[in-house]
Amino acid sequence: MSTLLEVKNLKKYFKTPGGMLHAVDDVSFSINRGETLGVVGESGCGKSTLGRTVIHLLPKTSGQIIFDGEDISDVDDHKLKELRRDMQMIFQDPFSSLNPRMSISQIISEPLKIYHVCKNSKELDSRVTALMETVGLALRFRDAYPHELDGGRRQRVGIARALALDPKFIVCDEPVSALDVSIQAQILNLMQDLQKERGLTFIFITHDLSVVKHISDNISVMYLGNMVEKSPKKELFDNPLHPYTKALLSAIPQASIHRKKERILLEGEITSPINPKPGCRFAARCIYAQDRCREAAPPLEEMAPGHFCACYRAKELAQG
């Protein structure tokens, strides 16, 4: 299993009137070919910024991105255009991610036209048809406009557009959070089928734990721009180490009424990402926080094989 994407110490800061906003702070991870990395965290923790920075939709502040064995941390426009063929994105809001003035076939064929993939309009037509079939869109929608479609179908258009150039890697930025639950399942299954067929690699950004459980191989948990825990899916759900992850998982509603589950309620508000204090970002809300947590940020350490956690007390807490 080879690594497709490796991100090292990625940082993305935004200048705001109040100071530096640390949206993504020193995040490292890697994804194997054909796998899905689920990124979870609450709103504003930098998940979307992370995804966008990785595929160069936002310029990074510092850090290294290695894609397919090649360092793509700093690329010029020409190289970036080539890279776009391999890295695509599926957007969160299917209502605003499609240009309302373009018909469905125009939207799907646009990337093909930009990269001159097809020799003539006939070939282009058949490519668009094939793409629409792949994502399960009826051909009668060819000349429809986005506003005539429901959310699920629009999201399929977004997926078709992302697939048009046959990318290797797709960042999915909460692709189902704007959809009904029944449609969510359809779209998730479609994405899994596509992944199997085409060997796609996903970063799947979401705040929905059941979705991430369904689709990911590995999961990383973000809190305020930091990656606090990263582990294979099963391990994370069975054996969460970081106090934040524990609180997050305890929020999943249980279908069984007999098993009483203890909810961990987090006190206080999420602290500001602008000019954050040194130390663990979660310390202010953590019931286990000690003085050392507030002095320096804990590094992401491997606690069990493949299971990383950034907490000084993870081991001692795990032992009870």
Partner: peptide, 20 residues
């Protein structure tokens, strides 16, 4: 709007984004 970001993502040039 998000579709402008999407246009960047599929490799549109600035001129194309402005005019299309």
């Amino acid at each position: 709007q998000e579709y402008i970001e999407a246009a960047h993502c599929i490799g549109c040039s600035n001129a194309r984004i402005i005019f299309r």
